[in-house]
Design a protein around this nucleic acid. Structure first.
Ligand code: ZN
Ligand code: ZN
Ligand code: ZN
Ligand code: ZN
Lengths: 166, 166
DNA sequence: GATTGACCTGTTACAGTATCACATACCATA
DNA sequence: TATGGTATGTGATACTGTAACAGGTCAATC
């Protein structure tokens, strides 16, 4: 089976899809990325990523922490923050500034400059590639300013929530 | 003198400029906007805006609160948050998500979809118009997703800090 | 085998950010 | 004056994030 299947599954946060497979494939990709980079996906870190992958939502650090503590891991904030920071640094998760929360990366390994789409009704978060957005930001900056990192997040209504409201 | 003077002053967060005039003009514009919209720029609110206008930086809520308290206003968090929320709702200030902080709007009144440029060295924050960025985000969203609000923030090095580093 | 050192996990304590709940003051207008 | 809406002040509390330190694991090295 070609890699197209993984790509297709990961692209569908706002569409009905086989999420168990979506999560499993993304986790497998993440593991491969970690191995390739010489990073250790230890039990806490792996479990944290699995928790994030359970849904296409962004979870607060303390939400993750509660889950970890219930499963026998530490129950102090640094436990969750360290695991989450590791995942973010490794490119396996992203921080959603607007929500002070974290979401699993749906395209681990590939260089990507994600834009996040947040549904204000169902709280789903989708990660879409948007090199054009980053280019537009760089173009908007004054000549002397060297853009290093861009965060772009949009709030709105997903298709199904829009349908439900009507 | 045409309005070009105000525009020129406001556009120069990362350039040397007469900031006293820059701040005074922006404050005057903000007052006009508030009057036109039937909003009350009360003493706390006005002073809060003045504090934000003192520099082209984003200030944390508690930083603002300390200033307000020192000047005889209330010293409880809601005092600052209410004033800041009012200014944001009125379009006279913006929240910088990345910094959990607030900055005065440099183009009050005009409809604008700002992008923020944050210098990681001197902490200056510039607000540049970037309709193209928002168009790019809308274009990147899947067909069913209705984008309502976009926040775009870039971290980097401003011209003068880049010069100082070299 | 013992030692070292890097890294990981866990803890305590605390700092920073944001909101709730309620009381009070102010202001417009009937 | 009475009344209702808006704005402000206060205390308490919830939420988010970090510093600093202690012990454990593991592999490389002596
Ligand atoms: Zn999925
Ligand atoms: Zn939705
Ligand atoms: Zn200025
Ligand atoms: Zn700078």
């Amino acid at each position: 089976m070609p890699t197209a299947s993984a790509g297709a599954a990961a692209a569908s946060a706002f569409a009905a899809h086989d999420h168990a497979r979506c999560a499993a494939e993304t986790l497998a990709q993440a593991e491969a990325v970690a191995v390739a980079a010489g990073l250790r996906l230890t039990p806490v870190r792996r479990r944290t990523l699995e928790i994030l992958l359970e849904s296409h939502r962004a979870l607060g650090a303390y939400e993750v922490l509660d889950r970890l503590a219930a499963e026998g891991f530490g129950r102090q904030p640094p436990v969750a923050y360290r695991a989450l920071d590791f995942l973010v640094d490794a490119g396996l998760a992203h921080r959603v500034q607007r929500l002070n929360a974290f979401a699993a990366c749906m395209h681990p390994g590939r260089a990507h400059q994600p834009v996040f789409l947040i549904c204000r009704s169902c709280n789903a978060v989708a990660e879409v590639p948007a090199a054009a957005v980053h280019a537009a930001v760089a173009a908007a900056a004054p000549p002397g300013f060297a853009v290093e990192r861009v965060t772009a997040e949009a709030v709105g209504l997903c298709a199904s929530c829009r349908g439900a409201a009507a």
